[in-house]
Write a protein that binds this DNA or RNA. Sequence first.
DNA 1: CCGTATCCTCCTGGATACTG
DNA 2: CAGTATCCAGGAGGATACGG
Lengths: 142, 142
Amino acid sequence: MEEGTLKSPSHCKGTKDDAVRQWDVREDCEVRQILDRVADKWSLLVVALLDQGSWRFTELRREIDGISQRMLTVTLRNLERDGLVRRTVHPVVPPRVDYELTPLGATLHDTIQALVRWTESHQEEIAAARAAYDARATGDTP
Amino acid sequence: MEEGTLKSPSHCKGTKDDAVRQWDVREDCEVRQILDRVADKWSLLVVALLDQGSWRFTELRREIDGISQRMLTVTLRNLERDGLVRRTVHPVVPPRVDYELTPLGATLHDTIQALVRWTESHQEEIAAARAAYDARATGDTP
DNA sequence: CCGTATCCTCCTGGATACTG
DNA sequence: CAGTATCCAGGAGGATACGG
């Protein structure tokens, strides 16, 4: 509603000398807004799943362990609003609603898959790092 | 249920019960845990910045618009614990602490940059989709 | 079956003040 | 400067019940 007042150039003045940053990190910038949406815990999972064809609401709910009905609805609405997911209501009874990625959403999927794959392939290193950190913390700071 | 009624993607098997997923989405699985950490709003920003060399605490704080001292501390601690960020304390007065990516953290950076670049290059499409959705919602549901 | 609405809890995360 | 500690408001998010 109240946007339009501030428009930020993609290159910004940096406090660290001149232009060290390659992108805008201001709180009100577009990228930050979208990043917050896309980097959302549930959004990530939903998009990752939706690549595998069309899903019904209840299927998604069953599949995503731990998500509540409310959060799935909210997440899907947000993704739909951002043009990443298409919602199709079939006028049958009982009602049937299908969700699938839009072409725009499909382009995001590659990036998310990269994130998931990174996580999978580095989970042991991270687990080891955590264990080492915890051991250091408990044994070192009496 | 019945395998025939569900449209299945070419590379997927018929039932969605558990064979369709290519990765584990259980709440207690490693990938979910790490994903939640990595997909965190502040972590993403910190990692993206840290690629550009070594940063001091206050520099990061100034740079990341809107982050509080507490959240920066917490975020850096988590990243350090996961082995993504190295924290170096210089025994001088006034104290000086530098943060930089570990080799492991550097491998994550590519993925995060991909996410940031995706966001940048699609922000107009998303803004348009949002505007369309909002217009539809306000004009359609009295 | 697919939601919306309501309530209520809990945890995130900001503000502030204090140490080394 | 670089934290830690404490307090507290607000929103995320779960549980439940009901409507289409």
